[in-house]
Each structure stands twice: as C-alpha cells, then as structure tokens.
Design a binder for these strands. Sequence first.
DNA 1: CGCAGAACTGCACGACTCTGCCGTCTTTAG
DNA 2: CTAAAGACGGCAGAGTCGTGCAGTTCTGCG
Lengths: 276, 276
Amino acid sequence: MGRSVAVDNEDRQRRLPAGRKAKLAAYVAETGEVTVTDLAERFGVSIDTIRRDLDQLSADGVLVRTYGGAVSQSSISRVDRTVDVRLTLEKHEKEQIAKLAAALVKDGSVIMMNGGTTTLAVARNLRDHRDLTVATNSLLVPPALPESTIREVYVFGGAVRTLSLTTTGPISLPSAGGADLDVSCDLALIGVGAVSVEGGYTTSNLADAAMMREMISRAARVAILADSSKFGRRLFAQVADLAAADYFVTDTAPPPDLVRALRENEVELITPDATT
Amino acid sequence: MGRSVAVDNEDRQRRLPAGRKAKLAAYVAETGEVTVTDLAERFGVSIDTIRRDLDQLSADGVLVRTYGGAVSQSSISRVDRTVDVRLTLEKHEKEQIAKLAAALVKDGSVIMMNGGTTTLAVARNLRDHRDLTVATNSLLVPPALPESTIREVYVFGGAVRTLSLTTTGPISLPSAGGADLDVSCDLALIGVGAVSVEGGYTTSNLADAAMMREMISRAARVAILADSSKFGRRLFAQVADLAAADYFVTDTAPPPDLVRALRENEVELITPDATT
DNA sequence: CGCAGAACTGCACGACTCTGCCGTCTTTAG
DNA sequence: CTAAAGACGGCAGAGTCGTGCAGTTCTGCG
C-alpha cells in the first residue's frame, strides 16, 4: 500500500515506537482528553497498539487512563485545582480508606487529622459519629465535618501552605493565660505520601512531615492512611518509621515485604477485604 | 439534527465517560445545584446516564444526591449555607465596601482580617495587589485570596466556631523555639456586627469580639467595615470605641449623629460616593 | 550468512462496561 | 386522592478491555 509521503512518516513512526509514544504523550498533554479510536486514526496504527501505549504511559504516570481513552495529567489538576480532582484520581480507593478509618474512631474521643484528600474524605465519613473533638492543621477539614458529629474543632495556627490549604508550624493552641497548653489525643489519622519498608512513612514536604510527626507523638493510637499507589515509594521527608503506627489503613493488600515489615512492627493492617 | 462542529465535540465527550463525570462534578460544584434533566440536556446524554453518574459521584462523596438532581458537597455544608446566603443578602453593598477596603491596602504591607462575609469579599478583591502578608482567624479567607497577590498567609489557631468557620482564642503564632512570637501589622480590616454612637463597634459573639480587639491592638492602622444595615444597632459584645478606628468603610452615608461622632473621633469615613 | 530470541504489531475471542429504553414502584405537588 | 415526575431494576446493543496467538522486524551470536 503505497501512499507516497504519508507512508514515509508512518513507517518512521512504526519503526520507532518510543518516538510514537512520545508524540502521543505530547498530543494528549496538548488536547487534554483523547479517545483511543481518535488516536489510532491519527497515528495510523491499530487500536490495540494505542491501548498498549496508553497503558504504558499510564503506568509511567505520564497520563491518566480512562475508559475509552485517556486524559492528561495536567488537565486533571487544572480542572479543579482546589480540592476535588486529586480526589478523582483514586476517588474510590480513598472512599474505601475513609470508611475504614472512620470505623476506628470511637464516639466521644479526641482525634487529630492532618491535611490531604484522604483525611478530607475521612472527615466526610464521620457523619455517624457523635461527640468528637477534632484538631487539625487543614483548613478544609472543619467545613467537611458534619455538624452533628462534632463537639469541638480546633485548628492549629501557623503559616498557610496555599496549595494544600494546610497550616505549618509547631503544634500549640493559645490559651487565655498566655502560655500555650499542651494537647494530646486518642487517635491520630495521618495521610502520608509514600510508604516503604526502608523509608517508613514519608511525604514530600518538610513542614508537613514535622506536623505529622508532632501529631503522632501526641496520640495514644496512630492510624496511617495510604492508598495503594503509595506503596514502595519514598519521598523527601520522613514522618516516622513503620513501627510508629498502630494501624495501617489502605485499599488493597500491600506487597509481601511491606506486609511482613508491618507485622514485625506490630502494625495492624486494615484493608476492605481483610478480616479484622 | 446535525450541528457541524458541536457534534464532534460532544461525540468525543461521549466516548469518555470518566471525562464527562469529571466535567459534571465540576459543573455541579460551580452551580451548586442541578437537575437531572438539565444535565442530560447539557451533556447530550440520556437522563438515565446522568442519574447513574450522579449516583456514582454521590457514592464517592463528590456531591450529594437529591430528588431530581444533586447539590454540591460544599453547598450543603455550612460553608455556603451560612456564608453564601448571608453574602447574597447584601451582596452588592458588600462588594462596594470590599472594593473600598481593598483600596486601603498597600502593596507589600502586612494586614490582619477577621472572619465574616464582608472581609471575605475584601479578600477576593485583593487580586490586583502584590506581596501581601495576611493573617486571619477565618478559615475561608486563605482559599479566597488570589494566589498571585500573597506573599505569606497565616491563620491564628484555636477553637473553631463551626457556624462562621473562624477560630477563636488569643492571637499567637507558634514558633520553632516554643514560645509564641508577638505579631503586629500595618492594617487591620475588621468587619463588625453593629455600630452605634454609644456602643461603638459591637458584635454578637464574645470570643469574636476578643479576637477583633486583639487585632486592633496590634495594628498600626485600623479599618472598620460595616454595611448600612448595621447602623445604630448595638450587639452583645463591644469590640472597641468609635475612636479605635482610623477608617470606617461602608456603602451609604450613616445617620448624621454617627457621622458627627466619627468626625469627632477623627475616624475617616469612606463611602462609594464620598470624596476621599 | 544463518539462526534464535526479543520486541512490536495486528487480529480474534470472550468478558466487561457503558448506554439507552422500558416497565414498575415511589415520591412529590396540587 | 390523583397525576406527574423521578427513582429503581432489568434488558439488549454497541463499544471497549484483556488475553492469547501469529506474523514481522530488529538484534545479538555462532
């Protein structure tokens, strides 16, 4: 089948799948949203090849695979930069985690929560609880807490990270006397950025890590929340060793080495399908 | 019938259910309240599909399903129920006040703002400013501040009033050393609940009044914001005497006795029609 | 030069998802 | 109480996904 010029281009692309994938990624980044059939037509290859390419690019984190096509990573964060769309990334998983984490909370207890989409989902899922005292460094958690469930809510003061809408700084709450009072809680709910056997719980921001660490040190029990995309990764700032947690809440079973390490450190693994 | 270009776009969207749901969620978040039929028409799919989408999004906690449609998560929470409703009450007046108050803010200065719908409107109207440092006791002000205008944002910690989403307690910011640092600012923007000649500036909540009073004491200049509905009224807790302010920003000219009292206390009256 | 192995591509088949339609039941409004 | 609108559940068609298989091209090696 000889189309004079077009064939040349297509042939070159066909011989360099890496090059085609690069162009494909660029095209997705440009348009923001593409379908498999459209791409197959545009690049002159079969639908199957496009699907395989998209799967690989998705595995590499370049784009986000959806049913029937893909959307660019940036368009997802741009659509709803404030909150919701990072949620859509692992929306379902986060909701699962949130329900499990909410089950750990006892009525009438005092809990601390750090910022992040996962803990935000937890806040929404506390609607069946009563008489909770909540302390957080997130500006989004208080509005998300159902009014009927809370006794009191406290926000830790400090500098605000405008991107995540969380405060940073040492934990302290001002008292009327002048000197700050020390606080502690029954349960700390900490959403982390990554979990690995060697690195423990890590996150990408140093101030956030410090805040989490303080919450952990003031809690009688600690629950770490992380979805499955965070397994085996290690980020900039360490929050704590694996042993610092009492519960590790996630959506799917972690890799075997992590499961073993958690068990050795006496961390209770909580997943949707697992028995207690 | 065949709309030439539009059909193409719609077809592409139709092929990406995930993308459609993301747009749908964004649309609901924007408008706050939608009906199924409206969405079906707008997105070019059947009512059934929209209903299924809404059910899923509801299950994921992105929105709240209602009979015949859905409402955004935020609109059901106190954020908009209290704030937005009150905002719409004297929306136009508050916007006028906000613009005038924003004009008082100098680029590069440090300002403090208390909570409330009026100061929230001010925060939105700071979009043309640069290098501002803002300290507030409102959880709603930081998200409302345009990102390009702010250098740093601080939130005072403390107990959260769930209705107004403000923190209460003494003003202090935790420092690394342990002891809290004293803070002060160039300008305090204080929205009050009532203004009268005898009572001065008053508000209905004691803790709020204490917070305002502290902000005033730490500011080089003080601007009091109040719409015309607050003239001549007196509420529970006094914030300060009339003389405590440097500027009094409102939407229409106050009654003569108040104008006279302000002049006697050397408070500059700022209204839309008035000359500077 | 010939050959084995790996990677890429297209195709086929079964399973799944999405979508619209229909009938029935529930809720809402008058 | 009645009628309209919406919700719920089942169903079938179309599109998509996942997997296995065969053919082709490229690479490394004898």
